[in-house]
Nucleic acid binder design. Structure first.
Length: 593
RNA sequence: GCCGGGGUAGCUCAACGGUUGAGCAACUGUUUUGUAAACAGUAGGUUGGAGGUUCAAAUCCUCUCCCCGGCUCCA
């Protein structure tokens, strides 16, 4: 165990100890409360309670105060082993703890003797509070936990055992770190993230909006936002160009029959926007595009020589997400996928996936987003969640694993994260303030081809089942934009900025000269604005900078007489000729800077 | 959908049973400016919507729509 792991184990113990401390404070203030579980988490701890009457945010301060009070007398943890009967007697009024005790008992009586011996029913006591617990505390809380290194953070609902069929408990989250300084660094970082919130910046920078009349989860795109969407989409297409992808277009609704065949109707019927025609036929808005694309592939009989067929669409999809799941552009009811499907033989799958891999990396490199890889596999314990047979899955998972291993990138495997029809390579991007987002995905699918009977004619003249690779580079343009708005805090690089240059004439008699520069840039497809209003110079410059425009060009007597422009970038101020400035802009756009 | 917190002018917020207010933005004049906001004036609201309690509701209650933080879900 190295030093860092040791430290993190200590921090985990501190956090878990604080969960006990929280429960002790709650029980003193609200004696009717039933305690359940309270683990440590990434930024602190939580404890789930079943309160007899609801509490509100104002109660948190009271509880926190009580915790600090109790901490003073928490000097030692003692623990003792109990039999199931003793434990149940102690918690006879707490059905949550009784359920946990029963589960430990079941594991103890399991066949695996070694495992069974490890499972014991232990009670830990500190101060006036005893809890059923596996352990993992600091020895002397009073000494080892600084009273100002933690704070209660927020209230939240959480289902017992994470199952929405169960009762909803009240979860109290706390933040906890080694020191007060680390705690405050964390809260400052969180405030920084709030400043970058894409919903706020989206409005301020005039990129997108929501309308109560249109409905929640249905973003509307302004001219600037639409421009950015197109720039991003064009970039993806430019990367796909050398690999032979073709654009296809599909309607946004379909008969339900398509999804009955694909299996989506069974699995996602509740999440579809459905339409009944006047003649009584049932249709659905498309929630994804693969079934439509299969029908384009299936328009003719293909020779193996004509494969792979690679189809891609940038197209909106619609999902009736539950209202509580919506969140700005990150999770919307209408969103645009940059969706590609490669129809090929299983023997070509690896090479095709490698090509997509290259596209993904070129794309994310341009934004300075570092990628991690998750190999998302099925959960063999619940086969009913997945289509098709085990052999097919094993084969597909093996191909993806091979690719993950061959490429030098940090990767981990995640059981149960596969789509219901295929395993996936999911890419996670780390943004400029260290947050991780799931972005691109590549899926190797043997099930849709089976269901839609997709084949080619092979060398021996036989029908051969093909495979289908699902690939999305951005995933969803909306979601990707939410990530880069926050990643750049709205200060987009030149190639991506909806307005690249703002020209500010000093006085009225400079407008004519400014207009000339404006025209030159405009003729060269630079996105340029002229700030020729009657506000003061300082105010007009300020306005351009508030819009996070990469370059502000100031033009007055000095510039007219010297024949140069004063160029204010975000960090520095330089002077150069209009020609040099144009060349610089073109370079930045070409190099995606 | 569920739990908790919210919704007052375009934006940020105040008023918290007793005539809805401020700053910024907008508009109109004046000002022609060399870098963190020129000056003056004007307009802007069924306090998200619908019911109810009250002499009186932005304020209290019920329903509904929308937003935020979680939970569940995420093809």
């Amino acid at each position: 165990m190295d030093k860092r792991e040791k430290k993190s184990e200590k921090l985990q113990n501190q956090r878990h100890t604080l969960a006990h401390l929280l429960a002790s404070a709650v029980l003193e203030l609200y004696p009717d409360t039933k305690t359940t579980i309270g683990p440590s988490i990434d930024d602190g701890f939580y404890y789930d309670f079943d309160f007899s009457s609801p509490i509100g945010d104002n109660d948190l301060r009271k509880i926190e105060k009580k915790m600090r009070e109790n901490l003073k007398s928490w000097t030692e943890f003692t623990h003792e082993e109990k039999t199931a009967e003793e434990a149940k007697e102690y918690f006879k009024d707490n059905l949550y703890k009784l359920e946990l005790i029963d589960e430990v008992e079941q594991r103890r009586s399991a066949d695996d003797k070694a495992l069974a011996d490890k499972e014991k029913i232990t009670f830990y006591t500190c101060g006036n509070f005893t809890d059923l617990c596996r352990g993992g505390h600091v020895e002397n809380p009073k000494k080892e936990i600084a009273p100002d290194s933690f704070q209660l953070d927020r209230l939240a609902g959480a289902y017992w055992r994470g199952d929405e069929k169960n009762k909803m408990l009240t979860r109290i989250y706390g933040l906890a770190f080694d020191t007060k300084e680390e705690l405050s660094a964390y809260t400052i970082q969180r405030e920084e993230a709030i400043k970058r919130d894409h919903k706020k910046l989206g409005r301020e920078l005039d990129i997108f909006l929501f309308s109560d009349l249109v409905g929640s989860g249905l973003p509307l795109w302004t001219p600037k936002g639409t421009l950015m969407r197109n720039i991003l989409d064009d970039f993806v297409w430019s990367l796909r160009a050398k690999y032979g992808y073709e654009k296809v277009e599909i309607p946004h609704i379909t008969k339900k029959d398509l999804y009955i065949t694909s299996g989506h109707w069974d699995k996602y019927a509740d999440d579809l926007f459905r339409i009944t025609t006047r003649e009584g036929h049932e249709f659905a808005m498309k929630p994804m595009n693969c079934p439509h694309h299969t029908q384009i592939y299936n328009r003719k009989q293909w020779s193996y020589k004509e494969l792979p067929q690679r189809y891609a669409s940038t197209t909106m999809c619609y999902r009736d997400e539950q209202s509580g799941e919506l969140s700005g552009l990150s999770r919307a009811r209408a969103f645009t996928q940059d969706d590609a499907h490669v129809f090929c033989r299983i023997t070509d799958a690896k090479e095709e996936i490698q090509k997509i891999w290259n596209i993904v990396h070129s794309f994310y490199d341009a934004f300075g987003l570092e990628l991690k890889l998750r190999l998302s596999l099925r959960d063999p314990a619940i086969p009913e969640k997945y289509l098709g047979n085990k052999n097919h899955w094993d084969k597909a998972e093996a191909v993806l694993r091979e690719i993950a291993k061959e490429n030098k990138i940090e990767y981990f495997e995640a059981i149960g994260e596969a789509a219901f029809y295929a395993p996936k390579l999911d890419f996670m991007a780390k943004d400029s303030i260290g947050r991780e987002w799931q972005v691109a995905t590549i899926q190797l699918d043997v099930n849709m081809p089976e269901r839609f009977d997709l084949y080619c004619i092979n060398e021996r003249g036989e029908q051969e089942r093909i495979v289908m690779i699902h690939a999305a580079i951005m995933g969803s343009i909306e979601r990707f934009l939410s990530i880069i708005i926050e990643h750049y805090a709205g200060a987009f690089p030149t190639w991506l900025a909806p307005v690249q240059v703002s020209i500010v004439p000093v006085r009225e008699n400079h407008i004519e000269e400014a207009q000339k520069v404006y025209n030159t840039l405009k003729e060269n497809d630079i996105r340029v604005e002229l700030e020729d209003g009657d506000e003061s110079l300082g105010k007009r410059i300020n306005h351009a900078k508030a819009q996070k425009i990469p370059y502000v060009v100031v033009l007055g007597d000095k510039e007219v007489s010297s024949g140069t422009l004063t160029i204010e970038g975000r960090e520095s101020k330089t002077e150069m000729s209009a020609e040099d400035f144009l060349a610089k802009l073109k370079e930045e756009i070409k190099e995606k800077k």
